[in-house]
Design a protein around this nucleic acid. Structure first.
Lengths: 218, 218
DNA sequence: CATGTTAGTTATAGCTTCTAACGCAAGCGA
DNA sequence: TCGCTTGCGTTAGAAGCTATAACTAACATG
């Protein structure tokens, strides 16, 4: 029955944690990760600084939680796209929508690394979920075009496929998944960082062109 | 005669500025931009905190100077490669060498943007130098392969080429330069951020494969 | 030599993260 | 229902940061 009934204390606690994270996301979007201030969040919530440490042990712990949620959201987005039968183009556009929704969230996952920082294990396992969904989509896509220029590397991949876990992907699919990752990240992160602003061309079209070349096996 | 003789004061001043920047680069490589501390640098140089403000007006000013130097170094690297007749492969490997030399320096240019920050004009003009060198190399490369998948975008580029300045590049060259930028950045920044570590494959080979596909017009 | 410039100092304000010690109130078990 | 425990929030404070202000000492120039 009420085996999963949460105590009022826990209800309140998780509510406050959610409030804190909501403010943290807002600050992150406005000022970036370096501008995230626990003190400021506490004041916004009407409580005084150190109270926040009841909910998150440190600033790093809060940021790690945000990173975890970002990975989780991206994994869900990829999984939903893969399960709904989206092809490579569909997955690419789902990725771009997710990224444009909150660029700083994207950079939390794929942005500048902090030299000392190591993500906890459960985050790397979410990263594997993302890769698995990507492999699913690539495997279901059109039979791969040859791509002779990187035939050697594809052969290399067939002997170094531990990162794909137990996914039954052909070497060509592995190659395609890596190409998806590197190319989509390349065009997307430059766009999100604003390196294309003022250049005059249509950024939607650039992305679509990259997707088209990728999907056509080129 | 001694019209360009610098006074001992100026000599000393620029020497101290250089010392400060050297320490700043070291801190940056070790702890990233967020871990850069003016106080720590001052103590390392044997002077007390506020003395440093004689040389740099603020922390932001110092970081902007580092960003400027990073852009300058990348522009020089590109220019040298272009002038020595390097092809697309040569330029790509020059870029990768420069990036691996100091990953945080690369991320200073192409990493996570800080929402409020706008680079001063002289930095964006260095960015145009970089683009010009890239266009030179792409223009001198093999006659462009068709790349039919993005023919529409190439046509779009031919009408939005203000960003190329007065460079006499064909639309195909413009397209190729953009592809170089997005793809090389994609694979490089993932490598530098450590997203490939532990995946098992050879990162040199992945980069070479991406370069090969790019250079073959695919 | 006198004067102005510049590099360094200390003191201080205001911000940050984070720890420690305390009070109060809400929930839980008997 | 009573009392105990648990946990939340408080203030105080340490240690760090950026940055400014006021002052001193050394230097360069008229």
């Amino acid at each position: 029955m009420a085996a999963d009934a949460v105590s009022p204390r826990e209800r309140y606690r998780s509510q406050v944690r959610a409030d804190i994270k909501a403010r943290a996301w807002a600050q992150l979007a406005k000022s970036g990760a370096s501008g995230l201030s626990l003190n400021a969040i506490a004041k916004e919530l009407g409580m005084s600084g150190p109270a926040l440490y009841r909910y998150f042990g440190s600033r790093d712990e809060l940021i790690t939680e945000l990173i975890r949620d970002a990975y989780r959201g991206l994994a869900d987005t990829f999984r939903a796209a893969a399960d709904s039968g989206a092809g490579i183009e569909g997955l690419a556009h789902a990725l771009r929508r997710w990224a444009l929704e909150d660029p700083q969230r994207y950079f939390l996952v794929y942005g500048t690394p902090v030299p000392g920082y190591h993500a906890p294990d459960d985050i790397t396992s979410i990263a594997q979920e993302i890769m698995a969904a990507l492999l699913d989509v690539c495997a279901a896509a059109e039979p791969e075009a040859p791509a002779p220029a990187s035939a050697g590397f594809t052969a290399h991949l067939s002997q170094h496929r531990r990162w794909a876990g137990d996914h039954p992907a052909t070497p060509g699919v592995l190659r395609r998944a890596l190409a998806f990752w590197t190319r989509m990240h390349g065009v997307l992160s430059l766009e999100l960082a604003g390196h294309f602003t003022g250049m005059g061309f249509d950024q939607d079209r650039l992305f679509d062109a990259e997707v088209a070349e990728l999907a056509s096996g080129r």
